[in-house]
Design a protein around this nucleic acid. Structure first.
Length: 481
RNA sequence: GGUCCCAUCGUCUAGUGGUCAGGACACCGGCCUCUCACGUCGGGAACGCGGGUUCGACUCCCGCUGGGAUCACCA
């Protein structure tokens, strides 16, 4: 049987990295098995679903390169277009006496919960409407519709005895006592189906063979399985992935800072790095740390998934990003860096070759595209501003003469203005004044970059070019006076 | 509180009865060096506790402790 997995985000906010990791694992499993990966949009909650969130989810997945075989823009993969199907499913259950109307109000339900809590009983629904409607009348019960005065909900009649066994591909066997499962609402009084019900119908209709999701859904699983059984359907196989936690050990959420895919994209991270980080959080292949997409697909297996929650480690993600930054072709980097330069409001160099040379000097000093661009400030913008502390320390009166001599030497250079030509000029000045390279390089560095940290001084000079180098040296000499 | 899940360095993890418990990130130190990085070499750092099973437990079983998830007319 062809494996079919799905990722079913709800368009009620940004695409969160803990959440997208579940999607990634579902994707990898499907690809590994040469099956199909389906993207479905769980938008039954019309109140909270937005077009912006949907757009962000779709664009995030495309950016990550997680492609789907079926899904948007096909409307059939939106729950909002399947309401008639859910109604049909609910009618079937009603007809067969496996669901019933519940007339309890929200206030009553709340009181019920509080009383249960007070008396240390389980807080679930007590089933008081279970037998309120005569079995013979159940098939005639109309679905809720507030505006038509049918202000009640439909509940699933969950079995009270026996147990439900979840043979999870990652967690192993989990047994739930059916007595613990209360009768959950499958249709709200506003006529909208609830998640647990819609999901079951979708997973069944779309032929899902494996449901891969976060283990926060594990408690839902026996309920969903019972709905499958009631509908006369076979539940899929389940694989519940451990959660991703924040540094404080609680489920990762917005309050942990940058958590959306877009946030990392905008911070200058590469999709390869994010994917690589996410896949190694909860899954392993021996000691291997770096995985290409093809390798992830080739090696992925639930057997190598861990069972325990993992804490999101921003440092390791940064290290991975650095790894991909170092090995990225300069040509590609040059293209990718431009939007970040634009975002800073700095001019984008027109000379592609020059841009690449510039990046080459910076790439081992930055871990993200944002860092790289910030570091490139002195290359991109004229005039530079000298850091006062650096200038006070290195642009002192005694360096004026050597700096002037260097300026003259550099100005006298003909031909290629490159590292090989610049170095001898430095050496002549060093010899003339009897000073060490460090004593000259730092003042020059401050003069050319405004600060004390930069790529090798010869590289900087070569990339800056003769005119800008001389201008900045003269400006610095003037400042030293 | 009920139910369910989980438990190897600070973090991610390898390990499937016999290993000096391995790797990675981070951290510390040496080397390289014009600064900062990169690179490189080296270092500290873990099997939560208690019972079993076994000739032998990080590995298997039970209990405890600890952490997490979930208990909506959200998904």
């Amino acid at each position: 049987m062809t494996v079919r997995t799905r990722y079913a985000p709800s368009p009620t906010g940004a695409l969160h990295i803990g959440n997208v990791r579940s999607g990634l694992f579902a994707y990898l499993f499907a690809r590994h098995k040469r099956g199909q990966f389906i993207l479905r949009i769980d938008d039954t909650d019309q109140e909270r679903s937005t077009q912006e969130s949907l757009d962000e989810i779709l664009e995030s997945l495309r950016w990550l390169g997680v492609d789907w075989d079926e899904g948007p823009p096909d409307r059939r993969y939106f729950q909002s277009s399947r309401f008639e199907r859910y109604r049909e499913g609910a009618r079937q259950l009603l007809r067969e006496g496996k669901a019933y109307p519940c007339y309890c109000t929200v206030a009553e339900l709340e009181a019920m919960r509080q009383a249960a809590q007070r008396e240390h009983r389980k807080p679930g629904y007590d089933g008081r409407c279970r037998n309120r409607t005569a079995p013979a009348d159940l098939p005639q019960v109309a679905l809720p519709d507030k505006s038509a005065g049918r202000d009640y909900t439909i509940r699933f009649r969950s079995p009270r005895v026996g147990e439900t066994v979840v043979d999870d591909l990652i967690k192993g066997r989990a047994v739930f006592d059916n007595a613990e499962l209360d009768d959950l609402i499958i249709f709200r009084s506003d006529g909208v189906p609830t998640y647990n019900f819609a999901t079951v119908l979708d997973d069944a209709d779309f032929g899902m063979t494996h449901v891969v999701r976060g283990d926060d859904h594990l408690p839902n699983t026996p309920r969903q399985m019972q709905i499958f059984y009631a509908l006369g359907l076979q539940p899929p196989a389940y694989a519940h992935l451990p959660m991703v936690m924040g540094p404080d050990g609680a489920k990762l959420s917005k309050r942990h800072g940058a958590t959306s895919v877009f946030a990392y994209r905008d911070l200058g991270y590469f999709p390869e790095a994010l994917l690589n980080y996410l896949v190694r959080l909860g899954w392993s292949h021996g000691d291997q740390e770096i995985f290409s997409r093809d390798e992830m697909i080739e090696f992925f297996d639930f057997a190598n998934c861990g069972k325990s929650a993992g804490i999101f480690n921003a440092d390791k993600l940064l290290w991975l990003n650095f790894h991909y930054l170092k090995e990225r072709p300069l040509e590609r980097l040059a293209a990718e860096v431009k939007p970040f330069i634009a975002k800073r409001g700095w001019p984008i160099p027109g000379d592609e070759a020059w841009l690449q040379r510039m990046i080459a000097t910076l790439r081992e000093r930055a871990k993200t595209l944002v860092e790289l661009v910030d570091f490139a400030h002195f290359y991109l913008v004229d005039p530079i501003t000298l850091d006062p502390k650096a200038a006070a320390k290195f642009l002192r009166a005694e360096i004026i003469e050597p700096l002037t001599a260097l300026t003259d030497e550099l100005e006298a250079l003909d031909g290629e203005f490159n590292e090989a030509a610049v170095q001898p000029a430095f050496e002549r000045v060093l010899a003339k004044f009897g000073i060490k390279l460090g004593q000259l390089a730092q003042p020059v560095r401050v003069a050319l970059t405004g600060g004390t940290v930069s790529p090798g001084i010869y590289e900087v000079i070569a990339v800056l070019g003769k005119a800008r180098t001389l201008a900045r040296l003269r400006q610095a000499i003037a400042a030293a006076r």
